[in-house]
């Protein structure tokens, strides 16, 4: 590896070395153990496990629900971040502090609380029942739980960046005749996009793997509302270590590729 800029700043070797050692011990070697375990399978066996209809259905559900949830948060989160940074209004401080609640609430408690709220007999769920649809025990419920759990990410990554953009820049642009949309397109968007992508990818990644909050509200029906992490748990509890690791590897590889793409995209945008 070669470093190309800032020869004046020390600590490259130390920090990179420490990062790699720590990461290897805690994350990479254990994950490697999983890959080695999965490598005991032949390609045909591996393929047979991951192409089973039940696994494919769970794969589709997990990734699409996480994507939709991240997208919803991409919109709600941007608006929230904007509102919290730019306006002072009654209750702002409370909302500001409470944004992190989904994060602080243990996922199992979140699952129980959301199920109590959105089950057909729940406080909110009964309105949905009156309108003729169900929230809990459907993919809608799963998406809802994921949206809840990942709510803070976009807001929190956008806030510091928004706060750092001087308001005068927009006002100047507006004064120079830029329409609000133009201000957004040419002034805000370029500054916000890298952070937005970070928030989005965090929300998405977290959503794909989320377990505790989802299993309560999902209904866990094979082929319909069964998420990948649950399927791993199910395989594990049947002593099917190979099946569990195969699905684990599949999840990791897909997530890794998606995250790598997002990181590359982000670096592309960050470059002037």
């Amino acid at each position: 590896m070669s470093r190309r800029t800032s020869p004046v700043i020390p600590g490259f070797g130390l920090t990179l070395g420490y990062t790699l050692v720590y990461l290897s011990l805690v994350v990479l070697i254990p994950l490697g153990a999983m890959f080695i375990h999965a490598a005991q399978l032949s390609w045909a066996e591996f393929w047979a496990i991951i192409s089973a209809p039940r696994v494919l259905a769970a794969l589709k559900l997990s990734f699409s629900a996480a994507f939709v949830a991240a997208l919803i948060n991409g919109i709600i989160g941007t608006l929230l971040a904007w509102t919290l940074v730019r306006y002072t209004f009654p209750g702002r401080k409370v909302i500001e502090a409470m944004i992190d609640l989904p994060f602080a609430l243990p996922t199992a408690v979140a699952g129980i609380a959301l199920t109590a709220l959105y089950a057909p007999s729940g406080l909110v769920g009964q309105f949905a029942t009156d309108l003729g649809f169900k929230i809990a025990y459907t993919p809608i419920g799963i998406t809802l739980a994921l949206t809840f759990v990942t709510l803070p990410f976009v807001v929190r990554t956008l806030q510091p960046v928004l706060a750092d953009i001087p308001r005068e820049v927009e006002e100047a642009a507006a004064c120079l005749g830029a329409k609000p949309l133009q201000v957004f397109r040419y002034v805000l968007l370029p500054a916000l996009l890298p952070a937005w992508l970070t928030g989005f990818s965090l929300a998405f990644a977290r959503g794909v793997g989320e377990y505790g909050s989802v299993i309560f509200i999902a209904g866990n029906m094979p082929m319909k509302t069964e998420i990948l992490p649950l399927l791993i748990m199910v395989k594990l509890d049947q002593y099917d270590y190979h099946g569990a690791t195969a699905i684990g590897v599949l999840m990791l590889v897909v997530s890794f590729i998606l995250l790598l793409l997002i990181n590359l995209l982000q670096r592309q945008i960050a470059k002037p």
């Binding site: 994350v27 254990p30 793997g209």
Partner: peptide, 18 residues
């Protein structure tokens, strides 16, 4: 970022495997 996108279930699983 990886541990973040790794399902908690997998995080537990890898330590069991190890």
């Amino acid at each position: 970022d990886l541990p973040f996108s790794v399902s908690p279930v997998i995080a537990g699983l890898v330590y069991v495997l190890l």
